[in-house]
Design a protein around this nucleic acid. Structure first.
Lengths: 340, 340
DNA sequence: TTGTACGCGTTATCAT
DNA sequence: ATGATAACGCGTACAA
């Protein structure tokens, strides 16, 4: 492994001291160096293919032009679009995104934070928010590290949040089903310690209270996966009671799991049961049947979170406001009129 | 931002020199320190919450216990399972995966490599392989950086490769369609500079030569996206000639795009046209119709690539062998008998 | 305008 | 067994 070209190599070739090289190559200090010298240094650096060592530099400057992005579950298709939005803002401004996948496990999340903090990331974009205590986020805040929560809020640390308007999304979903004639609607709720899925469950309950003629039920899916959705639907169908004519999933994966369960029980969607999802994840339109869902502008949420973080880094302070991105219902084939 | 606890703080509290702290806390050198001293140092470190600074350490040791993972397109659902497989092997061995998404762009890939090399990653797992010249991979090899290619091979650098047996997968797909009675089969081929999609196109051509009664055609989809697949299928349907009764996509996304196009043209799948995909990406079974496809063990490929890389790092040399993971055809609802 | 010297937090080497 | 010191590669007060 050939030795790296260092600042000393450049200094030797240019016939100056390494401090001069540092100044000449560094935007902010370039004015302190004579133009001719700058040119000489530049030529030498080019010739040797010198690239400053960001690690050594970070040891000095405590900065790295790098943003850590903490993702709870890469297998959930809502996160790739968010990541793309983040990168879309970061890249033109010279920042690199370093992704870490935590698998939803606290220990892994802590390790990822640790690892990235040590690598001197300039800030975090965190998609693993939970309403309960969250050691990693709390610790980051205590250490004065900048972070922005995206999609889910954090319960503990006062960080800015970019999330979506789950309440009005749920209201729209319920209204859509009622308009179709449905009077028995169940919600397969996601975890109550995610701000998004809790808001949806709360909004579902609120909507139910305002619609006296509608019978509602909530079943906890436990996790935001197809498997959890399928299990919850299985369980709901196994109960003796009259089954609901419409289902609203805590997210698209849960809704998809519900559809799998319904199909497995020989029920048709939407003829026997209508299903609504949440997020409009990639491929939601390609499912069988295509999924009626609440569209969340995932990419825009990613972009906004990156903008917020960079602004905080540059102004050296962050205000913990919450940005709530509007959502809209997308009607497809998984919902239909009730009881025809 | 509170100052980090450094090795000097621990040394002071334990009443020893920092060199001793380093030796006591470092697995390999612990035997050089008296057991009682080790205990004292440990207690001090615990009390202060000391964590060695991996950056400063990397400056000295040229190592970081970190693996860079280069992904061409996070939006392609085959990569999350590969990443999971990689992480599954890395995490228990103390390594952290740092992901970089290149969006398929050379400049971004170079920047990602640069950024990660500077962070002293101990090696790369590269999923962006292309058969043509690939500056980033070549440069990594020239610099003596360890890397393993996963999924796609690299044309230029002699790195180990973990890929799948696209040839026999394609053969199985063609045979399946022929068995169903199809005699006009088209392949919507992916880019020819990806080893996987080129192998599939070649295997398709080879299969065609051995089946004289079967008329085949190849259309270039250009990219591995649903949009590209839809465009290619649109184009194929626009041609005056008799349309094929079966389609094999360069991957699942292309196949999905083809289905979208067929539906848009009022054609049914599989009654009018059968469609086969490649990879068995997540949700392939949930599409409308569920997708017959060649299953590639994505997670296993990720795991194997990580194992290979760690072995190379530990033995300080890598042999550029190619591991070809077996594949299998999964028959679902997107294929059916021809011309009933 | 440029050079000197030190510090960032470790680990490796040499001396004790 | 432990301490002292240098080195990793860079940036920056301070001096010249």
């Amino acid at each position: 492994m050939p030795r790296r070209v260092t600042i000393d190599d450049v200094a030797r070739l240019a016939g100056v001291h390494k401090a001069t090289v540092s100044r000449a190559l560094n935007e902010a200090t370039r004015s302190q160096v004579r133009a001719a010298t700058v040119e000489r240094v530049r030529a030498a650096a080019d010739e040797l293919g010198y690239v400053p060592d960001v690690v050594a530099r970070g040891l000095r400057t405590k900065t790295s032009m790098t943003i850590g992005v903490i993702i709870p579950d890469l297998m959930n298709p809502i996160f790739p679009p968010i990541v793309r939005g983040i990168e879309h803002v970061l890249q033109p401004r010279g920042y690199t995104a370093l992704l870490a996948n935590t698998d939803g496990r606290d220990a892994v999340e802590l390790a990822a934070f640790e690892s990235l903090v040590q690598r001197r990331v300039d800030g975090f974009i965190v998609a693993t928010g939970r309403l309960g205590a969250q050691p990693a986020v709390e610790r980051a805040h205590r250490d004065g590290v900048f972070a922005v929560m995206v999609n889910r809020e954090a319960g503990s640390a006062p960080y800015p949040v970019v999330t979506n308007d789950s309440e009005s999304g749920m209201a729209a979903a319920v209204q859509h089903l009622v308009d179709l004639g449905h009077r028995r609607i169940a919600h397969l709720a996601g975890p109550r310690d995610f701000s998004t899925t809790r808001a949806r469950a709360d909004a579902f309950a609120a909507a139910a209270r305002e619609l006296p003629g509608v019978r509602t039920r909530v079943v906890d899916a436990g996790a935001l996966t197809t498997e959890a959705g399928q299990r919850a639907m299985d369980e709901l169908l196994a109960r003796g009671a009259r089954r609901p004519t419409a289902i609203i999933g805590g997210n698209d994966l849960v809704a998809l799991g519900a559809i799998r369960s319904l199909h497995a029980h020989g029920l048709r969607v939407p003829e026997d049961v209508s299903v609504v999802g949440f997020n409009d994840m990639p491929f939601a339109a390609d499912f069988s049947p295509s999924l009626t869902t609440v569209r969340v502008p995932l990419r825009e949420m990613g972009m906004e979170s990156a903008r917020l973080l960079l602004a905080a880094i540059e102004m050296r302070q962050l205000d913990a406001r919450t940005i709530r991105i509007p959502v809209s219902l997308v009607v497809r084939d998984s919902t239909g009129p009730c009881c025809e």
